[in-house]
């Protein structure tokens, strides 16, 4: 694992999301009402909707374009045979860290 400090937890709105740019495209960081943070691809596999603009509820997010719902633990879409990649996140005090091994490994290799 190679942990990267992304920012302060309050940079992500409660029950909201922010995106980060990576070599693999945008990754969204979701913060739930209980201050859990999840990271997953920002791109909906259906029509490419930006998931970081969706409504975050429980441990799920709903795509803003056509309301596909994804479980943030697994990346699995509700009732669809599709999923989004997820990434490990660690919270250390107020800082949010993301596992960068999958995100920057390809270009580093």
């Amino acid at each position: 694992m190679s942990w990267i400090d992304i920012g302060h937890i309050d940079d992500i709105p409660l029950r909201g999301a922010r995106k980060i740019k990576t070599e693999l495209g945008c990754v969204a960081l979701f913060r739930t009402a209980q201050d859990e943070v999840f990271a997953a691809s920002d791109t909906c596999p259906h029509k490419g909707g930006p998931l970081s603009e969706g409504i975050v509820h429980g441990q799920s997010v709903t795509c803003p374009l056509h309301n596909w719902v994804f479980d943030l633990n697994t990346g699995q879409a509700n009732g669809e045979d599709a999923s989004i990649p997820t990434y490990a996140v660690r919270i250390d005090g107020d800082r949010v860290w993301i596992d960068g091994s999958k995100l920057i490994a390809r270009s580093a290799a």
């Binding site: 990267i4 992304i6 980060i20 740019k21 920057i104």
Partner: peptide, 14 residues
């Protein structure tokens, strides 16, 4: 600021 990406890891990769 909320409208911009939180971070840009493409720079890290470089």
């Amino acid at each position: 600021a909320d409208y911009a990406p939180l971070a840009d890891l493409t720079l890290e990769a470089a």
